[in-house]
């Protein structure tokens, strides 16, 4: 009889190359020989990313290659609010402004010192819309936390050593923020793209804008696509109270030399992920 349980390690590793992340986990639960191989590889391989989203309070993950939704348990999220994803870490914050970074599968955690955001009485319960970190805090203490908050009008910056965060108020609604090529960039509701300049005062320097899609209801995301700064326009329309549907996506590459938007018709077979993305294994 063929002995599949004791297949050689090298052969099992060849098979692992072609499994999706979820298939790969189930593979590890078959028998102890398979588990041993699984255990060795689990830390090294990079898998096709999962999209993380919330169904009510329940975190769910989805991978378009498998077309299956899984509910995952992140007990650490119970008292925390998820505000971003940077460098493989979920960024979470609680009402006392403690920031915690978490890798949702390995459950590795890093506690950052409380970020002293600037809050007034009335915006105490207003949540952060989006947070990003300039570099991996588990590797270096030279990082900056940036967050969009207060109805998307304020930007806060904080780095280790600061006693309080530096806050600026924008004149327009901020849609997204990204750390790209050594600087923070933000995009406003009307497509204003600004670079954040740190000096005596923090300033938003507008570098490009376009008014093409103004009348459309949309969400704008920024993505670093193989070294290019892309703006993703997700055209949406309401389908009822509190529910939206996506109509289509428009893509623009930001030409930073000419300070203009260049529409992209395709991305050559690549897949872009915006907002909540989990990079496996983490």
């Amino acid at each position: 009889m063929a002995d599949y349980a004791s297949l050689h390690k090298d052969i099992l590793q060849e098979i692992l190359k072609f499994l999706s992340f979820a298939d790969y986990i189930r593979f590890g639960a078959v028998c102890s020989q398979w588990y041993e191989v699984w255990y060795e590889v689990v830390k090294e391989k990079h898998y096709f990313p999962y999209l993380l989203f919330f169904d009510g309070d329940f975190p769910m993950i989805f991978n378009i290659l498998e077309n299956v939704v899984y509910q995952i348990e992140i007990s650490e999220l119970q008292e925390m609010h998820c505000v971003g994803f940077s460098h493989g870490w979920l960024i979470m914050i609680n009402p006392s402004f403690d920031i915690k970074l978490l890798k949702p599968f390995s459950k590795t955690q890093v506690n950052l010192p409380p970020v002293p955001f600037f809050w007034t009485e009335e915006d105490f319960d207003i949540l952060i819309n989006k947070a990003v970190i300039s570099s991996d805090p588990s590797k270096s203490s030279n990082y900056i936390v940036a967050a969009i908050y207060h109805w998307s009008y304020r930007l806060a910056f904080w780095k280790p050593g600061d006693s309080e965060s530096t806050v600026i108020t924008s004149t327009f609604i901020l849609e997204d923020i990204i750390w790209y090529n050594g600087a923070f960039y933000v995009v406003g509701k009307d497509s204003q793209v600004c670079r954040v300049e740190f000096g005596m005062n923090i300033k938003l320097i507008e570098i490009a804008s376009q008014d093409k899609w103004d009348s459309h209801r949309k969400k704008i995301y920024m993505v670093d696509f193989m070294g290019d700064l892309l703006l993703i326009y997700r055209m949406i329309y309401p389908t009822g109270y509190n529910s939206l549907k996506t109509k289509c996506f428009k893509l623009f590459k930001l030409d930073l030399e000419e300070n203009q938007f260049v529409e992209m018709k395709n991305i050559n077979g690549f897949v872009l992920f915006c907002f909540w993305v989990l990079i496996m294994p983490c």
Binding site: E14, S20, R26, C31
Partner: peptide
């Protein structure tokens, strides 16, 4: 390996054990 991976796709560990006649000897 691709073919084998295809046989494991969306299968539970128990289904895999049955198909390939493997004993569950996990600790």
């Amino acid at each position: 390996a691709v073919t084998f991976a295809g046989m494991l796709k969306m299968k539970s560990p128990e289904e895999i054990r049955q198909k390939f006649n493997i004993n569950n000897d996990l600790t």
